[in-house]
Design a protein around this nucleic acid. Sequence first.
RNA 1: GGCCCCUUCGUCUAGUGGCCCAGGAUAUCUGGUUCUCAUCCAGAAGAUCGCGGGUUCGAAUCCCGCAGGGGUCACCA
Length: 475
Amino acid sequence: MKPTRTRFAPSPTGFLHVGGVRTALFAWLVARQSGGQFILRIEDTDQAREVQGSAEHIQKSLKWLGLDWDEGPEAGDEHSPYFQSQRLDTYKDWAQKLVDSGRAYADPYSPEELQEFREHAKAAKKPFLFREHRPENPPAWDGSQPLRLKSEPKNYDWHDEVMGDLHAGSETIDDFILVKSDGFPTYNFAHIVDDYAMQITHVIRSQEFLASVPKYLNLYETLEIERPLLATVPFVMGPDGKKKLSKRDGAKDILDYAKEGYLPEALLNFMATLGWNDGTEQEIFSRDELIAKFSLDRVQKSGAEFDEQRLLWTNGHFIRQLPRDDLFEKVVSFWPPEAVDFDDEYKKRVLALVQERLKYFAELPELTSFFFKDLPVNAELWQDHKQLKKLSSEELRSLLGQSKVSLEQSDFSLEDLTKRLNDLLEAANQKPAVLFSLIRIATTQAPASPGLADTLAVLGKETSLRRIDTMLAAF
RNA sequence: GGCCCCUUCGUCUAGUGGCCCAGGAUAUCUGGUUCUCAUCCAGAAGAUCGCGGGUUCGAAUCCCGCAGGGGUCACCA
């Protein structure tokens, strides 16, 4: 059996978002699970749409996710080059073969004439077919005109690894353009030639190409090359649930997720389970499990809506699973600016308290700022508090003062703090909802924080008492 | 308009004739975990399986029709 070879073939017209990367992920998984190869090919045949630097940007995105390629830019060169713009000779050779055998011809029409044909077809409510205007005596192809395939309309039945058995009538076969008048091949032509040259065994691509597959089947036959297995992956849908996710409705650059502190494993898991599952109730898969369990025939045929909430939950789950030291390393660039004055030991203790609260690393400053600086006194915190607002300023001051006296005696170990806080509860005859809230607000000035004893232990005696004094003066 | 694909809780999904008056996860809500937020635990609510026929003792599952959504009909990929 031939080794499995899959490819991801983006055009360098911008960044990659979840939709595009998921297709790459599926192709990568298929290659990895069979011990085959994953190839990255850059389809830069449209010079007008090309965006400088995006080929590099795309590579960076794949690398971040750990979707490594065996051949392609900066990798194996067995079938190089991997930029289509550098493979023009190959396309020219194949094109010439077709011209010589009478299976391709020069398109003599002007853009205006073509446009007129199209409008006629539209007015007649019929699909536009170029072959209905196939010229009787086309001029010799000198490279200045587009070159079209002389198609052979017929019916096709084929199998798609995701969609199942498919059928299309001959009316879908047309004389599409192989080589544009600028000398560059179209996607429709170049990808078939390259997939063959690079010995791709599985073509895994997004759904927008499904309607073109019969044309490709026709071209495979004309070229007399054996076609690879075909797999069509449904769209990732945008927030409306109807149209495919696009940059227009806010689809993010996958590298933005890196910047915001998402974990590659979480993204991978999220994308894989967006339209795929293994038939069990398992929700979380490691990278290796994904590789072992993925299969194209269990990929959903319908589109799946991108659900930000689910991504957040997945990422939080992976963060919670991370060993503390790993998390500490990953989070280094996300601390609030004031944290530079604190040592690693202190930051690790803070991190331990917020690990289970983090959904993504960029939340870190918001969750931990009071560990690194005194926040201004915020009267709303007790004035709007449903227990504390029942007490007068005098009562609050007295209660907090009483707490201070006890805390001054503490060594601020977790054990001692816990004991003292409990004793205080009894001595003051107060509920935790009152006393703990008051101390928590005084020492953090934040609407939310980790548990009180934990927080005080990390803040330390000096800081805690200083903040209590500040609060005492504010009533 | 032609052709093609799709249609199960808000969302991701399980389900291939009886175990399903539909299971899990997430999101939401409630309760518990000495205070807040989060985690965790327990629970609630949430899908007449797009609609209509048919086959069958029995259908989310098979057949037919319809509707809705999407894609495609580029010298873009």
